[in-house]
Design a protein around this nucleic acid. Structure first.
Lengths: 212, 212
DNA sequence: GCGTAACCCTACGCACGAGTAGGTATGCTC
DNA sequence: GAGCATACCTACTCGTGCGTAGGGTTACGC
């Protein structure tokens, strides 16, 4: 019966990537708990014990997914933004790279953003990554502000950065749900909202609540 | 033994609310799948069959939570924004009401935003609610634009509205994680980001990508 | 004061899915 | 071509947690 081995034996590194691909796909659709190891194994075209042998328990597998997609995203962004460019140019490049990542790895984005958020054991890991992003954006704003001779409280800076990151994530989600949409164009739209608003802040324009 | 009934018998309406309170609390911490009906029942101070008798299966219970918190939120917002006010005033009141809701019902917000998103059966319901919000915001923007004699494509309007809603949700999440933070102040910060950016758009200022 | 309906409980059955035991085949090295 | 590591499988165990069967007790109408 050995004449035609139904499917090929492949080196570990290759199989691991296939498993991660399958896992990201299944986790993105079902969420961590509803996803079953059986389904992931089947989708990867392999049997369950292999998944356990290579990637460990379900939690470890999920963390591996988070790790791969997370670094993929961070590297896409980091590779795009040269630190010596003007703020708007850096922001633009960062956004373009980010939306490019989301467009290319929609499932990866869905796992990071939609699934890992609520699940207690992983939320922390994600929050850290997010915090790094917020910090970068806040740093950019602060830099631009100082260049104009202005300054605002650190907490305000953080919150504004948080809002910008949130808006960006939200558009990323919109992009993930609209397969025909153009990442580049989405980045432009985000730039419009973010930069125009931020520019106002930079020039010292602020909005104040009415007397009531 | 009947002399002191360990705990009182209560009418159905009261118990249902206690159960929903417990369910929202547990779901918000654990997520839909990781939450157990036993824990919810225990937290509500009642036995499991009662939960099934009153609120039905786990899915139905989750939907009931979504429903209660969702309408609570929508009503808070709707009750705040009189339709004949100027756009910035309406936006401000809407934001204030929204952050007020999040501050008052942090667990409810967490269920809506963090948990219901990824879980397939419920994501649709939530997306609809969110879409209604986006529509309202887009309508406001459109109204304000037309008042200035301007107009932009419907898709751009939608995406900008999406970004604003996303930024708001993100700040809401920040608020939910910072119990000491002031909802009112958070609303002001959001208003700064949103309105200043939107005002620019209203006046026809747009950002364009560099030639490359 | 007596029936009846509403409130509430202690158990269980049962399925589903994580993780493993134990074994087979294939290719690579010397 | 013998030995050995690596790739791979089928078929189980066992815990966990949803949902229920079957029965008890309190209040309320009449």
């Amino acid at each position: 019966m050995s004449s035609v081995p139904a499917f090929k034996r492949l080196p570990r590194a290759v199989r691991e990537q296939q498993m991660l691909d399958a896992a990201v796909k299944v986790f993105s659709r079902r969420g961590f708990h509803a996803a079953s190891m059986d389904e992931i194994a089947e989708d990867a075209g392999i049997s369950k014990p292999m998944v356990y042998a290579y990637l460990g328990t379900k939690e470890e597998l999920f963390v591996a997914c988070l790790h791969r997609e997370g670094t993929r995203m961070m590297q896409a962004i980091a590779g795009a933004a040269a630190p010596d460019l003007p703020a708007d140019e850096r922001l633009w490049r960062g956004l373009r790279a980010f939306f490019g990542f989301v467009g290319a790895y929609r499932d990866g984005w869905a796992v990071l953003y939609r699934q890992a958020r609520g699940e207690q054991p992983f939320a922390g890991e994600l929050a850290t990554m997010r915090a790094r992003l917020v910090e970068v954006v806040a740093g950019m704003l602060d830099h631009a502000l100082r260049a104009e001779g202005r300054e605002i409280a650190a907490i305000d800076l953080e919150v504004v950065a948080y809002a910008l990151v949130g808006a960006t994530e939200s558009l990323a989600d919109w992009l993930a749900d609209h397969p025909d949409a153009d990442p580049e164009k989405t980045a432009t739209r985000m730039m419009n909202v973010a930069w125009l608003g931020a520019a106002q802040l930079l020039h010292g324009v602020t909005w104040r609540p009415p007397a009531d």
